[in-house]
Amino acid sequence: MTSLYTLTDLSKGYTRGKESITIFEELTMTIPEGDFMAIMGPSGSGKTTLLNLLGGIDRPTSGSVECQGVRVDKLSEGKLAKWRSQNVGFIFQFYNLMPTLTAAQNVELPLLLTGLSGKQRKERVATALDIVGLADRKGHRPRQLSGGQQQRVAIARAIVADPKVLLCDEPTGDLDRKSADEILETLQLLNKDLGKTIVMVTHDPSAARYARRELHLDKGRFVEQVQEPAQ
């Protein structure tokens, strides 16, 4: 498989007062296109930080993040925002929907950054909501939806602009088991049927089993475990 991401000697740390804290050092890895990778590890191991670096919402202390030939860590803020809008779909633990917008309006947000007409945007939104099984809830506001439904709206928002990669930060962390399984099945479907590359941070082993492989991040190092996806 062609590699989507290449991380080379990636280090990230920050200072708190006079204290220097290293999260990870000289991390090198590739993420192939079409992968579904679960990143696990204890709290503070740098799982979310890694996800932020992949998504271009944080910058490394040193090393490089390359995505299909683009040095993401070197892009200016403006270019980085454009790159994110074209390549990355984010799914957050707390859904991060706009409470005053309807499901359809939330899903439409990434499309406002494209040159699509209003009609084209509507069609794309309908398709995305259909994929996550919420076509009949397009006029509902987030507070009128359950947690699982809100996360599915967030997934629709993440895929509507057809990005190459979905970055999921504890996507089932706020959900009950049944809703969590539905979300994970949806992610698996997106990976298998639509070929989306998915990087998912989770602390839940049963969630990680939906991925093609698990990476355990501990003390700044990866331990890889390849597995058959859960059925």
Partner: peptide, 11 residues
């Protein structure tokens, strides 16, 4: 958080 989300999306 809403503003940061919009910025993360690419706004």
């Amino acid at each position: 958080r809403e503003i940061a989300t919009l910025r993360a999306i690419g706004f």
